[in-house]
Amino acid sequence: MDIQIHIARDADASAISETIIKTLRESNARDYPPEIIDRVIESFLPSKILRFLTERQVLVATLESQIVATASLDQDVVRSVFVDPDFQGMGVGRQLMKSIQSLAMDTGFNLLRVPSSVTAEGFYASLGFKKIRDEFHQAERTIIMAKKLKR
């Protein structure tokens, strides 16, 4: 599988949105009720993705020109890591996180934080992230995790 990772462009916004929404509905829906999924989806419509492209470093992973995953770096915080459910467990997320960690180190950060969903906690733990605390946004539980970066 020849996955390519690159900086997202404005033209990628709709495909990024579709990938995130599919992942929320298929993967995250196992851990969160429909009303939370619907509320989170509102944050990832194409217009919101276009705004993220101006505020964060957004990466996409593509396979044969199809976007199959995305992740972004907002200062020292990893945000919006989503891998299409059809490609989960194949190393795509790990490749994206390796690129995100390189971006963070190149920017001079020594610590990387991630607000993890319940669904992704095990994934981040497998990459060396440690749980710091839980946060609740109404009924939505987020696990704040961190990892020291090694140079």
Rank of each mutant, 00 (worst) to 15 (best):
I3S: 02
I3F: 13
I3W: 04
I3D: 05
Q4R: 10
I5W: 12
H6N: 06
H6R: 13
H6V: 05
I7A: 06
A8I: 03
A8L: 01
A8H: 01
R9D: 07
R9N: 11
R9G: 00
D12W: 01
A13T: 03
A13G: 03
A13K: 05
A13Q: 02
S14Q: 12
I16K: 07
S17K: 11
E18H: 08
I20D: 08
I21H: 10
L24R: 03
L24Q: 12
R25E: 15
R25H: 15
E26Q: 15
E26R: 13
E26V: 14
S27M: 09
S27Q: 04
N28M: 05
D31Y: 14
Y32N: 01
P33T: 13
P33W: 14
P34G: 12
E35H: 15
D38H: 09
R39L: 12
I41D: 03
E42Y: 06
E42N: 13
S47I: 00
K48E: 07
F52V: 00
F52E: 02
L53K: 09
L53P: 09
T54V: 12
R56I: 06
Q57V: 11
Q57T: 13
V58H: 02
V58Y: 01
V60R: 01
A61H: 06
L63G: 09
S65H: 12
S65W: 00
S65K: 14
Q66K: 15
I67D: 04
I67V: 14
I67Q: 08
I67M: 08
V68Q: 01
V68S: 05
A69V: 03
S72Y: 02
S72A: 11
S72M: 05
L73D: 08
L73T: 02
L73W: 07
D74H: 09
D74P: 00
D74A: 11
V77I: 10
V78G: 04
S80Y: 01
S80D: 13
F82Y: 15
F82I: 02
V83Q: 03
D84G: 05
D84A: 09
F87E: 07
M90K: 15
G91A: 09
G91P: 06
V92F: 03
V92T: 12
G93A: 11
G93I: 03
R94W: 00
L96T: 05
K98P: 00
I100R: 02
I100K: 00
I100N: 07
I100E: 02
Q101W: 01
Q101L: 01
S102V: 13
M105H: 08
D106H: 10
T107N: 11
G108I: 09
F109Q: 14
R113N: 12
V114E: 08
V114S: 00
P115A: 14
S116D: 06
S116V: 03
S117C: 01
T119W: 09
T119D: 07
A120F: 09
S126V: 14
L127C: 06
L127V: 05
F129R: 14
F129E: 07
K131V: 12
R133A: 07
R133M: 11
R133F: 01
F136D: 03
F136S: 10
F136K: 08
F136L: 12
H137F: 10
Q138K: 11
E140I: 09
T142H: 10
M145T: 04
K147T: 02
K148T: 13
K148I: 14
L149D: 05
K150N: 14
K150Q: 13
R151N: 15
